[in-house]
Computed example of a mutant assay.
Amino acid sequence: MIFKRLPTLLPAALLAGEAMGETQFVAEAVVSSMLIDRGEQIGGPTLEVALLAEKEAGAGVLYGGLYRLTPFGDDQAAFADEFDYTIGYGWQGAGYAADVSANWLTYPGEGDEASLELFGEVVLVELPLSPAIAGFYDAEFEDYGLEVTAGPEWGAGDWSGYAIGRAGFVEPGDGSETRSYAGVEIGAVRPVSETAEIGGYARYEVADQDSFADDIANGAIISAKDSGFAVGAFVAATF
């Protein structure tokens, strides 16, 4: 999966240890009841769509892609649309997989300023629960943060299940209070062909700030709470 808000951003071929001769394309679409990102709600009902191109380069995989976030429903006006451009590189070493990327974040139709976010992740693939650490830095607003995750995976017939525990913090560049958060996610994935899969997930997160909408009226959040719960479904295809 190529969304940062789902279990991993690392290129699919890299994690699977596959050899890629030609350029490979991965497309994904996710519909969720709430969009949670780093201990904060950034959408109510939301559609996310992404297209990623991957190609072997040196000892790893070079990739680039487009990502679109579109809130919908009665409360759509309370959240920003987002259109991102990504370029990155992933590779494997002895017992780990790593990824670095640069992401140009834009907000069409909104007053929010575009920014460059730098992202990195390391997954210890040979340890139990595949612990990982990821970090980001926004070069425009000087926000930064770290997140650690770990969790098991298992098989159940045609389905593969996973559970993830996560904890992290975000330090805003404007000097406002640091946001710390923790949460848990559980999900399942099923192949429907040699090149496509479907799945779903449930995610709960709690923060030390009121960063989740509690009441929305006239396109604005008028009260907030410190936790949120989301369910979602996704489809992905490789070609």
Rank of each mutant, 00 (worst) to 15 (best):
202 A>D: 04
225 K>T: 15
212 F>L: 10
107 Y>G: 11
49 V>D: 01
99 D>A: 04
236 A>R: 15
185 E>I: 04
126 E>K: 12
229 F>I: 14
13 A>L: 00
139 A>P: 05
53 A>T: 07
204 Y>L: 14
186 I>D: 04
186 I>P: 02
53 A>K: 02
34 M>Q: 12
105 L>S: 13
10 L>W: 13
224 A>C: 09
27 A>N: 11
87 I>L: 08
83 F>R: 11
144 Y>I: 04
153 E>G: 05
62 L>A: 15
4 K>C: 10
23 T>Q: 04
165 G>H: 11
16 A>V: 06
23 T>S: 06
158 D>G: 15
73 G>E: 12
195 T>G: 12
132 A>D: 06
112 D>F: 06
83 F>K: 14
7 P>E: 11
21 G>Q: 10
71 P>D: 00
120 G>M: 03
179 R>V: 11
24 Q>E: 08
62 L>G: 10
101 S>A: 14
56 E>S: 06
189 V>E: 07
86 T>E: 07
54 E>H: 00
144 Y>R: 10
222 I>R: 13
133 I>V: 15
185 E>F: 04
146 L>R: 07
213 A>K: 01
76 Q>M: 02
6 L>Q: 15
121 E>R: 12
173 G>L: 04
2 I>Y: 15
11 P>A: 11
129 L>S: 12
179 R>A: 11
113 E>C: 00
211 S>A: 15
116 L>I: 03
150 A>T: 14
22 E>I: 02
89 Y>V: 03
181 Y>T: 15
31 V>P: 00
161 G>K: 11
29 A>T: 15
202 A>P: 01
233 A>S: 07
5 R>P: 01
70 T>W: 00
207 A>N: 03
14 L>K: 10
178 T>G: 09
93 G>P: 03
73 G>D: 04
222 I>C: 14
